[in-house]
Every structure is written in structure tokens, then in C-alpha cells.
Design a protein around this nucleic acid. Structure first.
Length: 875
DNA sequence: CGGCCTACG
DNA sequence: CGTA
DNA sequence: GCCG
């Protein structure tokens, strides 16, 4: 085996034996066992080779008997579905000592070791030993296998120990807070706790590891568990509302809404529902690149030397302004000295002087971004005086530009090759005075939208593909009526819990939307489509002949269908809960309110805000708030009569709960209660311009928390819907360090300002841990209820914070539609890849792929580019 | 007849 | 189970 | 409910 050499990879660390057995000597023969970590066959080979040639190089053994067992993922499997996803690769070699390899392997199987290679070396002394030699070989093999098993067990125990230590630390600091709770504010409650928590120095378990003292490790685990138990009991005594409080203080749902008033009074939380800073006049509409910066090239600013001061600008704004300047034909200067005109949001001399010397500033014109926007919009270089950024400099701003001193020879012969937005951004950032640390780094081009936008090549699409991610699905299609009927079937199957059937109707709708550009006139038009089988053909035929589908009619005539679908519109109520509630005889949302004990003030806030729908539902002929309240009360009374067993039902729902589940249940109930109170607002569609306004406000706030973030509005908005059910925004920051924990910090800020009223989820992602736990933390998300300052209607806004290298997969993953995403993943699976919103993984070796642009996401998956507006694979 | 997207709370 |  |  001369080419064994090729398995030795000298750049990798050398294989290290995890354990060596006792030497067995018998009539001049010597046996020694060794065991190495080997997750792949190649690693096993490397270890065998290393032992034979390097370790035993001076005194080569007569036989190197080896056997290996490696766990590997089956093709196309993720490892997430359990053991069946894996297969064992095992084998052995005798190296001249016949049958011995199989014996070693058998020992390994009995000892249940995995991902290792065992090598038993024999030095032959000239005397034949007979069958006893196999016993020696097996003894050596068993020794090393057991040693490794003990080591593994120890590592497990130490890992458990370390996570128990973490839990203990959290409990300790929480207990600390509970003790001093009366003097605390909300900020104190969750702010410095992290730093306090960090005082513990990591426990040192190295002696246990060295001694392989499993018994001691087990004792410590038990001790920690008891300590935690005691701690919890203590907490219970000190804080009767422990369960709620713990939720409140830990990372989940820290911003609990007003219905948990006990928490707020407990913590003396200074809640400012509407912070003054956002009550003032808002900035004028701030068109994003997509609106203002794209468009025909103009030469309104030809020859104008601009410097854009990035301080106090959001990334989106910086991108927009560079785009506008470029479009207007301006020359963007790297150095402020070269410019005649400075675009800035800074309005205070003191702040400006941190970036630009006062004497320099005096010789320029300093204008607000509005000047650039208006000049490009009106296609005329406007007088600067009206847009002076600093009132102190207003005279010089007006006087210094337009200036006629400029020679067109310089600008005409473009000394600088027409700079791209990004390179200029980088350049100007690097030319900031070194005295001030740059608050915002340059924005890498790949985090900004592409310019020009990608073109969707329809000829590359396969309209008859089984995958919606290969088709172009517009918002509405020529067969919209048919699709709506089939969607009724999908919905009824869904609420009845028939997921697979539901999926088939969903696929049928998606196929019709994406593959047919004309009205279906005949059944043969539909027969060729994937996912249209016998049942669907029957339905389509009926539709073509009569304009109706009887099964759909039946469904629409069924009160059960309407009740179930109405119930599932409430956030937190899915098909199963809806069916359970219906089973109790509840049929209207008002009855649900009674059931969940929605207090009238929970509803009144909504009734105030959304008076139209609120009052329409609660009272027929009255409009005063008092009557509405009374009306709700009467509903409560009436429903008590109708559903007297409501309490019993709750008990039925929560059968056999241990305390933890109980807590979860209570929480979920509260959550549904809140959602019921918000239902009128949340049912309202959000117009596109309000989505944009929400985005602007969010970015302005985010810039204060963490300057330099970039973002994309995703979801239905990005797919072009005129009205959106919610707002989804994906964020990142060029510096990955800046994104960690940002989601939580930002939510706190918005909550404190009264902009976010509820946070229903606040989560960290750890995708890609199919095998290794190395890469995680790649996404953080918050699902919130949001109210624009000065507005009344509450909106659902989802915040997704991605690491910069997963930004574009996050954007693709959150743009949707749902069917498009499912097919994206299915398609990826078929190609040996795993796609999710925080990356693409090659299944074979779990190698992560990070596309640098949105287009690259499609390229990597081998898909043609499909514009977001053509990803409407769902109805 | 098994699979139908994948992840988190 | 519910949500994205 | 449809596909491979």
C-alpha cells in the first residue's frame, strides 16, 4: 500500500492516541493497543499510518491490526431526524494477522465505541502462540475502548456540570434582583445583570479531567442539581410571582405587556408610552434607494464636488445619498478639503467639529440631505441657502455655492473614474480626521442593494417545474377566482388538521399561479400541470363548466369552517386549539374573550383606537365608550350562561401538567388574551407607505442604538403587495461584533420609547448545529407589536438581525412567500444542500456557504434569478 | 408506500 | 402546537 | 392529495 502516504496530511495536527493499553508479553511476542479519534475513514487511515510509520518507525511492528467505526450522515439527510439519518462506516484490516481485524471490530461493537480507530500492534518474537493470540489482541482492544468510553462519559459530565454552573449563576443574580426589587427600574432589571453575571470565574475541573474521576464528577453534578433546587425554592418564597417574574427577567418576553400589572408595580417600571423625542415633527419622507436613487442618469450636478459626512446617517440613507449623487452626475470627494459642498445631518457646531475643522467648513457649503434629494428630484441645482445644515454657517453656505470658480476641464476629464457608491464611501470614511474614532465603518457594497438591479430572465424559468422557486408567480394571476376557491379547500383541510391534503391544495394553487399565464379554458390546459391529479382535475372541470365547485360551496356554507378560520386568525390559536374551542361550543370571538377572561380595559384600548371595527362588533346602536363597556359586560354575562363549563375546559386542556408546563400554559393563555385584545388592530392591513414610514422610524432609532446598520424590508412588502399583514425587516451591521445582542438592546429601546408595546418572541437562532456546535448565533429575531408615534393602530413588526455573512440568505428566507420558501428548501435538498434563512450548508460535509449577494443565493442553489415580486407562490 | 421545509419557543 |  |  504505497499510496497510504497520500493520507498523511502534514498540515493537520498529528494524530494523538487517546489511550494506550497495557503491554501484553507472551513468549517473545508483544501486543499493544492504541485508539485514535477518527470521524472519517480518511482520519482512520491517517492514524494507522502515523502509528505505524512515525510512532513505531524505529521499531516497526510485525502487524498493525486495525478496525474503525465512523458515524456519517446518509446522503440527503440532515441528522435532525434522529438515528435513522446516520449510517455507520466500519471496517478492519489484518495486516497479515488473519482474522484479527474482525476480532477487534467485534470488540468495538460490543463496547459501542464510535468515531474511533483501534490499532493493536504485534511484535512477533519467533514463537507461534496459537489461538491465545486472539485473546491478547481482544484484551488490548477492549482496554482502549473502555478507556475512551470513560473519557467520553467524563466529558459529558463536565459539560453538564458547566451548564448547571451557568444556570446557577443566572439564578443567583436573579435572586439578587428579587431581594432589591423595590428600588429597581426596568432598566436595572435586565441591564447590568449581564455584567453582574459575569463575575464568576469559570470553575476549574482540570483535576477531575486529569484523574478521570468520574465518581467525583457525578457527585458534583448531583450537588449542583440540589443547589439549583434550593435556589428555586428560595426564589419562590421571596417572590410569589416567581414564574411570571422569571419570564420577565430572563430573556424571554422581557417586555411583557400591561396585563401583567403585578410585574410592573413590583419593579416600579417607568413606562413611557410615548416618548417626547418622537412626538415632534418627523423628518420629511426619506426615499430609499429604490425610490429616489434609481432612475435615469442626470447631469444636474455635473461638476459639483460633494462630500457626504456619514455621521448621524443610517446606512440606508448613506446608500441613498451616494446613489442620488451618482445619478445627478456629481463628483464625490474622498477628502472633505476637495469638496465645495458638504451633505450632512449634523446641525451643531460642536458635533461638526469632531469631523471637520471649522475653518474648512467655513469655506464650504453645508447642506442637509434634502438639498440633494430635491435637486435631483427637480433636476436643478437648488440654492443652498434654503438647505443650510448649520444656522451658524448659513451665510457662507449660501455664498459658497453655486460657485463659478470651478473649471470644467477638471471634471470633464474624469480624473477619478466614476466612483461607485461603495468605494467612495470607503474612501471618505478613511479620510475622516483620525482624532475621532469613526462611529460608522464603510458599508461593504455587498450589503447594499445591487445597482443596477438584477434582471429576471423569464426564458430561464421552467414554468412547469414541480418547484415554485423555478417559476415566476405574480401577485395575482389570470385564474385568481379558481385559486381563491382552491384556497378555501386548502384552508378547510388545514383547520381540520389534514395537513397533507392541505399541502396538495396549496401546491395546486401555486402551480396555477406560476405556470399559467392565461385563463384556463379547458381541462387539458390543467392536465399537464404538476400537482394537478384526479381530484383537482375533477374540481377544475366543474369550475370550468359551472363557475362553482360544490365542495367549496359546501365548505363555505358550513358554520364550523367559519368559526375555525375566525379562531385561527388570533395570534397563538392554531388549528388544534381552534377545534378544541369549537368543541366546547364556542362559536364567536366574543365568546373567546369571555373564555380567556379578556378584561374590558384590554379591549377598550383597542376600541378607542380602532373605533370602527371595535364598536361594530361590540355594540350595534351605541357609539359612546361607556356603552361599549357595558355591552362587553353583557356579553360576558351572556356567555357565562352559554358556556358555563369554560373553567372545566381549561382544566381539560391542561391535564397532567407539571409545574413547568403549567407556567408555559399560563403564559400562552396570557398571550392569546393579549392577542384577542389587539385583534382589531392586527386584522387591519398596512398600506405600503406606512410600512415605509415604520421602516424609517425604525432605522432612525436603530442609528442611535447602533450606527451603521443596513436593512431590507422583506415579507409581503418586498413581494409588492399593496397592503401588508405585517412588516418584516432584516438587519445587519458590517461589523459582525456589532450585531450580537443587538436585537434585545434595540427592543428594549423601542419598548422604553413606547414605540413597541409588546414583544411576543425574542429569540436567538442557532442553526447549523446538525453535527458541530461551532457556528451558531447567526440570527436573532423579535416579533413585536408596534405603534408609530402619533398613530393609533398597532402593527405587527418582525425584526430579524443577521450576521453580515448570512444577511442575504436571511433576506431570501424572509421574503417568502411560504410555498416559495418550502420549495427553495426542497430544491436545495435535492441538490445535496440545506437552505435556511441563516445560511446554506452542503449536506455531504456540513460545509457552510455564505453567498455575498442575493443573486448569489440563487446561483449557489443553481436557480435562475426570480424577482421578489414574482415569488408570490401563495394566494 | 413513504415523503411532503425547516427552525425555534 | 404555533409561528416565521 | 400527489409524486416518485
Amino acid at each position: 500500500m504505497a499510496n497510504l502516504d497520500t493520507f498523511v496530511n502534514r498540515t493537520k495536527p498529528l494524530p494523538v492516541s487517546l489511550s494506550t493499553s497495557q503491554e501484553i508479553r507472551d513468549r517473545a511476542s508483544t501486543f499493544v493497543g492504541n485508539i485514535y479519534r477518527a470521524r472519517t475513514l480518511a482520519e482512520a487511515r491517517a492514524a494507522i499510518n502515523h502509528l505505524a510509520r512515525v510512532v513505531h518507525g524505529a521499531k516497526p511492528a510485525s502487524h498493525e491490526i486495525a478496525a474503525w467505526r465512523c458515524m456519517s450522515l446518509k446522503a440527503g439527510k440532515t441528522g435532525l431526524e434522529g438515528e435513522d439519518d446516520f449510517e455507520v462506516i466500519e471496517g478492519s484490516e489484518d495486516d497479515g494477522e488473519s482474522w484479527s481485524g474482525a476480532r477487534v471490530l467485534k470488540v468495538m461493537q460490543t463496547e459501542a465505541v464510535m468515531d474511533v480507530v483501534v490499532i493493536v500492534s504485534r511484535w512477533y518474537g519467533g514463537t507461534m502462540l496459537g489461538p491465545i493470540r486472539f485473546e491478547h489482541i481482544e484484551t488490548c482492544a477492549r482496554d482502549v475502548c473502555r478507556a475512551v468510553r470513560l473519557q467520553d462519559e467524563l466529558e459529558d459530565l463536565l459539560a453538564t456540570l458547566s451548564s448547571l454552573d451557568d444556570i446557577l449563576d443566572n439564578l443567583r443574580s436573579e435572586l439578587e434582583k428579587v431581594k432589591s426589587v423595590s428600588s429597581m427600574t426596568v432598566d436595572d432589571a435586565a441591564g447590568p445583570s449581564n455584567s453582574q453575571r459575569r463575575v464568576r470565574k469559570p470553575q476549574d475541573y482540570s483535576s477531575i479531567r486529569k484523574e478521570v474521576d468520574i465518581a467525583k464528577a457525578k457527585r458534583l453534578v448531583t450537588a449542583r442539581e440540589n443547589a439549583i433546587k434550593n435556589m428555586k425554592t428560595q426564589q419562590e418564597e421571596r417572590a410569589p410571582h416567581r414564574k411570571v417574574l422569571r419570564r420577565y427577567l430572563s430573556s424571554y418576553r422581557i417586555f411583557q405587556p400591561r396585563c401583567l400589572s403585578n410585574v410592573q408595580s413590583l419593579t416600579n417600571a417607568p413606562l413611557s408610552p410615548h416618548h417626547p423625542s418622537l412626538q415632534g415633527p418627523r423628518r420629511p419622507p426619506n426615499p430609499l434607494r429604490a425610490d429616489g436613487a434609481n432612475g435615469p442618469k442626470l447631469d444636474v450636478l455635473k461638476g459639483v464636488k460633494l462630500y457626504i459626512l456619514q455621521a448621524k446617517m443610517t446606512a440606508a440613507e448613506i446608500g441613498e445619498l451616494y446613489g442620488l449623487a451618482e445619478r445627478g452626475g456629481a463628483e464625490i470627494c474622498k477628502d472633505v478639503e476637495d469638496a465645495e459642498l458638504i451633505i450632512t445631518n449634523v446641525s451643531m457646531r460642536k458635533r461638526l467639529e469632531r469631523h471637520i475643522e471649522w475653518n474648512v467648513a467655513k469655506s464650504k457649503s453645508l447642506v442637509t440631505p434634502a438639498w440633494l434629494r430635491e435637486s435631483v428630484r427637480k433636476n436643478i441645482a437648488l440654492p443652498c441657502g434654503d438647505f443650510a445644515a448649520l444656522s451658524d454657517l448659513s451665510p457662507t453656505t449660501a455664498a459658497n455655492f453655486p460657485a463659478e470658480t470651478d473649471t470644467d476641464g477638471e471634471t470633464g476629464t474624469s480624473v477619478h473614474p466614476s466612483p461607485t457608491r461603495t468605494t467612495s464611501a470607503q474612501a471618505s470614511a478613511s479620510h475622516r480626521p483620525p482624532s475621532t474614532p469613526p462611529p460608522t465603518g464603510p458599508i461593504p457594497m455587498n450589503l447594499l442593494p445591487p445597482d443596477p438591479p438584477y434582471r429576471c430572465d423569464m426564458s430561464k424559468l421552467d414554468h412547469l417545474s414541480r418547484f415554485s422557486c423555478c417559476r415566476a408567480s405574480p401577485l395575482v394571476c389570470p385564474n385568481q377566482k379558481l385559486c381563491e376557491m382552491l384556497d378555501v379547500m386548502r384552508k378547510t383541510r388545514e383547520v381540520e388538521g389534514e395537513d397533507r391534503s392541505s399541502l396538495s391544495y396549496q401546491r395546486a394553487v401555486s402551480v396555477i399561479k406560476g405556470s399559467i399565464s392565461e385563463e384556463i379554458a379547458h381541462r387539458r390546459d390543467a392536465e399537464k400541470l404538476p400537482y394537478i391529479g384526479t381530484k383537482l382535475i375533477t374540481m377544475i372541470e366543474e369550475y370550468l363548466e359551472t363557475g362553482h365547485i360544490s365542495e367549496v360551496e359546501t365548505t363555505l356554507a358550513s358554520p364550523r369552517y367559519h368559526t375555525l378560520t375566525a379562531f385561527t386568525t388570533i395570534y397563538g390559536i392554531g388549528p388544534k386549539t381552534a377545534r378544541q374551542l369549537h368543541g366546547l361550543g364556542l362559536t364567536t370571538i366574543e365568546q373567546l374573550e369571555t373564555y380567556y377572561g379578556v378584561e374590558h380595559h384590554d379591549v377598550v384600548t383597542t376600541a378607542e383606537h380602532g373605533s370602527l371595527s371595535g364598536e361594530a362588533q361590540t355594540s350595534a346602536g351605541t357609539s359612546s365608550e361607556g356603552s361599549a363597556k357595558a355591552e362587553i359586560q353583557t356579553h360576558v354575562e351572556a356567555n357565562k350562561e352559554k358556556a358555563p363549563d369554560a373553567v372545566a375546559v381549561k382544566e381539560a386542556q391542561g391535564v397532567m401538567l407539571d409545574s413547568e408546563e403549567d407556567a408555559r400554559d399560563v403564559m400562552e393563555e396570557n398571550w392569546i388574551k393579549i392577542a384577542l385584545g389587539l385583534r382589531h388592530d392586527l386584522a387591519k392591513k398596512i398600506p405600503r407607505d406606512e410600512v415605509e414610514e415604520i421602516h424609517r422610524v425604525v432605522m432612525k432609532e436603530l442609528d442611535d442604538v447602533e450606527p451603521g446598520c443596513v436593512s431590507t424590508i422583506v415579507g409581503g412588502y418586498r413581494r409588492g403587495k399593496e397592503e401588508c399583514g405585517d412588516v418584516d425587516i432584516v438587519f445587519t451591521h458590517p461589523n459582525p461584533e456589532r450585531t450580537r445582542g443587538l436585537c434585545k438592546r434595540f427592543m428594549r429601546r423601542l419598548y422604553d420609547k413606547g414605540i413597541v408595546t409588546h414583544v411576543m418572541h425574542l429569540s436567538r437562532f442557532h442553526a447549523h448545529n446538525a453535527l458541530r456546535t461551532t457556528h451558531w448565533d447567526s440570527l436573532e429575531k423579535a416579533l413585536s407589536v408596534f405603534v408609530l408615534p402619533g398613530h393609533k393602530t398597532r402593527r405587527r413588526v418582525d425584526f430579524i438581525f443577521a450576521q453580515p455573512d448570512t444577511y442575504w440568505t436571511a433576506v431570501v428566507g424572509w421574503t417568502g412567500s411560504m410555498m416559495f420558501e418550502r420549495d427553495l428548501r426542497l430544491w436545495a435538498k435535492g441538490r445535496g444542500l440545506k437552505f435556511d434563512s441563516s445560511g446554506i450548508t452542503r449536506r455531504r460535509d456540513s460545509k457552510l456557504i455564505f453567498p455575498k449577494t442575493e443573486k448569489e443565493v440563487f446561483d449557489v442553489l443553481g436557480l435562475p434569478w426570480i424577482d421578489p415580486t414574482l415569488r408570490n407562490a401563495d394566494l
